[in-house]
Design a protein around this nucleic acid. Structure first.
Lengths: 358, 358
DNA sequence: GTCCGGACCGTGAACGTTCACGATGGCGTA
DNA sequence: TACGCCATCGTGAACGTTCACGGTCCGGAC
């Protein structure tokens, strides 16, 4: 079951077999197919050890992710790094960062593609802008894996994310359980035009419906990832609904909403569910102001993304078009276990400007 | 940074370096230390590809786990298998099963040790009985990793488990959130003498205490993993406390408790939290009779165990004495995502004897 | 002095693959 | 006919490590 066996079986040399298996020039198309057919029938599996021993060519994959929110993206990077170590030194991971989601990802992508990467892991901020670049990458045989956010209808290899519908449904079910008496709850998101955000709302509403509509959505707020707007609209929602029982902030921008609730003295009567985990949120969870946060498990996402990409580069095996991680409810009781696993320097935010801590 | 560089730097042959690095006989102790020191200072990392290419010696690790509960242990095995594939064919995993936890694990251990395994992954049913065997294994340089249950005070390499204190605390916090009005709850376990079970109770009580003692433990029941006893004592507890608001079954034996609650018509007034996931539990979760189950993530445990063991066998790097996975709350809304990932044939229980399904 | 044995160490082949180079042969052109 | 070119294929070295084998040296016994 080696390259030699194929050569012997066909009466050709190992060099010819090598050329055939790697689609190199300088070989008769007929012998090429004969070799391929024989390789197939013999069940040929390349010996990776020997391959890497000889031409110490390393696979280079580049990871383009934002810097902010640090704790989240650092965790994602950590998951990738961790999953990559078993393959070292045959695999080399190159990290490139840009300030925020969608700010500079295209440029970083072009640079890496020009420098000759073998694969990508990216979080598309603006999928439409990235689409043509994913196309050219695919044409050159460079696979792209999306994490956290997807770039649908492109030639990406696969996407890894927390299934948004389930994320919303988990938050909804938890709120339903926490508020057995029923009542009104608020839903905060970024843009409902974004597929992911709309899916979360769908999942959320579906969960509420399960309970016989004792809990209902009093307002759906689009904050457009803007701190000021989030704060202002949270104040408005709370004042318009003095009897509001719960809030689910389905984006990572939960701080403005939390502060608004605190300013109005409503924290004790509200059950609040947020999204993901970042330093400034830890305190709110510890003192119970946030009942739970739906964690999208960046570490696991990173691991899955890297493994799918590596498998494809080595075996050529295609993953399913979408890979999902199960969202986790982080509460006070299991918070510490998450903080343990997180990148070390990321937990202490120190006095960041504009951050109110109580 | 290869064996040749060490040889050249010291003016010896590669054979000598090889003998020194592997503690083989037939080498002067002095040259041995000289080689080791030089290897250290040059930062020598063996080329695993070359090593495996030459003496195609495969690491063989044996996994001894119970058959029942199938879904749980199959998931654990799946996690191990999955984590092992990247190392194939340099790593070979051998699975041995015995009927139940503690029934035949010692015999299986001895057999595998005699057959010359390189490492173990086991779930000690009776840690005391297994201790001497772990000792002899350790003396022969065969590392043992415990999963799910630990064998403390032995020479095991490490143990992988869901931190029992956190498991209990998560269940407690969830119940607290579900029952904002306070009241009495029941706690079911196996044996309080078992460290893990006692830790879960501690975590559980700690979470209740956080809330200003509005929720309190009406009864702690030891069911000794006996179905009849569990059922009988559940009936007794429910009848003694007609106002019981919630139940946490901290072992996998939750069915007798659930049936007792159902028989007494108390399901609708009880918030029930169980442990782990198995086929017969799925229906109870789907119709909301079980609010949530604390999942101890066997797949992740398997992955962690294998990676720690492999790292040690290859690098000699020792993992921390305990590795923890974060327990997850499985509810109706994320149940399907878990069932997806589970071993295929394990979900459908068919008509198992003695199983009541509604 | 010769021989032997043991301790220690060097030598070289082999593992499966890759790749640069050389070899072969057929065909067209001078 | 002689030559060169191109397409196609074979050859052999190299990658870093392991291991069986053989070599060298030294001390002791005859």
């Amino acid at each position: 079951m080696g390259i030699k066996d194929i050569a012997r079986a066909l009466g050709v040399s190992t060099g010819t077999v090598d050329r055939a298996l790697h689609a190199k020039p300088g070989i008769n198309p007929m012998t090429r197919t004969r070799v391929l057919r024989m390789a197939e029938s013999l069940g040929y599996r390349p010996n990776l050890a020997a391959r890497h021993l000889k031409s110490r060519k390393v696979l280079r994959i580049t990871v383009n992710l934002p810097r902010e929110i640090a704790l989240f993206w650092d965790s994602l990077r950590e998951g990738i790094r961790e999953a990559a170590t078993p393959f070292a030194p045959a695999l080399e991971v190159e990290f490139a960062s840009y300030p925020r989601l969608g700010e500079g990802d295209v440029a970083a992508f072009e640079r890496a593609l020009a420098s000759g990467t073998n694969g990508f892991i990216v979080a598309p901020g603006d999928p439409v802008a990235l689409r043509p670049h994913i196309r050219t990458a695919a044409q050159r045989g460079v696979p792209v894996v999306c994490v956290v956010t997807d770039a649908p209808d492109t030639q990406r290899l696969t996407s890894v994310s927390a299934d948004p519908y389930t994320v919303g449904a988990v938050a909804g079910e938890f709120l339903t359980r926490c508020l057995p008496g029923g009542g009104e709850v608020g839903f905060f998101t970024g843009w409902l035009a974004t597929q992911d955000h709309a899916d979360k709302l769908r999942g959320f509403e579906q969960s509420l419906a399960h309970d016989g509509h004792k809990l209902r959505v009093a307002g759906v707020v689009e904050a457009h990832d803007d701190e000021r707007e989030g704060h202002r609209r949270a104040l408005a929602l709370l004042e318009a609904h003095p009897d509001l029982k719960g809030i689910y902030v389905s984006t990572v921008n939960s701080l403005p909403v939390l502060r608004a609730a605190e300013e109005l003295g409503r924290l004790s009567t509200l059950t609040i569910v947020t999204t993901d985990l970042f330093p400034d949120l830890v305190g709110w969870i510890r003192r119970g102001a946030v009942a739970a946060t739906v964690y999208q498990r960046p570490i696991s996402q990173g691991r899955l993304a890297l493994q799918a990409l590596y498998q494809f580069l080595v075996d050529g095996t295609c993953p399913p078009p979408k890979l999902h991680v199960v969202p986790i409810l982080v509460m006070r009781s299991n918070l510490e276990l998450f903080l343990e696993r997180l990148p070390a320097d990321a937990e202490a935010p120190a006095g960041e400007p504009g951050v109110v801590r109580t």
